[in-house]
Simulated assay, not measured.
Amino acid sequence: MAAQVKLIEIRLGMGIGGKSYITLTGDVSSVKAAVEVGANAVTKTGMLLNKEIVASPRKEVFNNLL
C-alpha cells in the first residue's frame, strides 16, 4: 500500500520517556492510510502510545512546525 504524503518532521523526545512524534501532510485519506501502516508496524513492538490525525489544522500550527 502506498500513500501520497509528505513527511514534515520527526521529533524525538529527550527526557520524556522516549516519546516522539512525526508530522505528515497530504490529503486526509492518504495520511490516515500512512498512519495506519506505521502504527501497525510499531504496535508489534509494543511501543505505540497513541496516534492522532488533525484533518484541518489552523495556519498557525504549520507556522510553528516549519
Score class of each variant (00 low, 15 high):
S29Y: 11
L49F: 05
K44Y: 06
T25H: 05
V35A: 06
T23D: 04
G15S: 00
R58S: 12
E52F: 14
E60N: 03
G18W: 00
G46L: 13
I22D: 00
V35I: 04
M47T: 10
F62Y: 15
S30E: 10
Q4H: 13
T43C: 05
A55C: 06
F62K: 11
K44E: 15
V31A: 10
T23G: 09
V35E: 12
L49H: 14
K32Q: 04
E60W: 03
L24C: 00
K44M: 03
L12M: 10
K32C: 07
L49C: 01
L24T: 10
K6I: 11
K44P: 00
Y21K: 04
N50L: 10
K59I: 13
S29K: 13
A33F: 12
M1H: 05
F62R: 09
F62V: 08
A34L: 11
A39L: 03
I53N: 04
A41K: 05
L24R: 00
L24K: 05
R11P: 00
G38F: 13
K51H: 12
I16G: 02
A41W: 07
E36N: 12
R58T: 03
N63C: 12
Y21M: 06
I10Q: 01
V37W: 02
N63G: 11
N64T: 00
A39H: 07
S20H: 01
A55Q: 11
V61C: 09
E52C: 08
Q4R: 15
T23W: 09
V31R: 04
G26N: 03
E9T: 06
K44H: 08
G18I: 02
V61D: 13
N40Y: 12
T23R: 10
Q4L: 13
G15R: 05
G46Q: 06
L65S: 01
T43R: 13
K6N: 06
E36L: 03
K44L: 01
V35T: 12
G15A: 10
V35W: 05
G38M: 15
V42W: 00
G13T: 05
R58G: 08
A39M: 11
G15Q: 03
A3R: 03
T43M: 10
T45Q: 14
N40C: 12
G46R: 00
V37C: 02
S56V: 15
S30A: 15
S20V: 09
P57Q: 04
L49T: 05
L7K: 02
G26L: 11
S56F: 15
A34E: 15
S20C: 02
A41P: 05
A2C: 00
V35F: 10
A2T: 15
V28H: 04
L7S: 04
I10K: 08
I8R: 11
L48F: 07
I16T: 00
G15I: 11
G18F: 09
V5L: 03
G17I: 02
M47Y: 09
G38V: 12
V42Y: 06
G13F: 06
K51E: 09
I10Y: 14
E60Y: 02
A2Y: 13
A33L: 10
T43V: 00
K59D: 08
E52P: 14
V5F: 01
D27M: 04
T45S: 13
T25M: 06
L12H: 08
S20A: 08
S20F: 06
K51Q: 15
K19C: 03
V31T: 05
G38N: 07
S29E: 07
M1F: 07
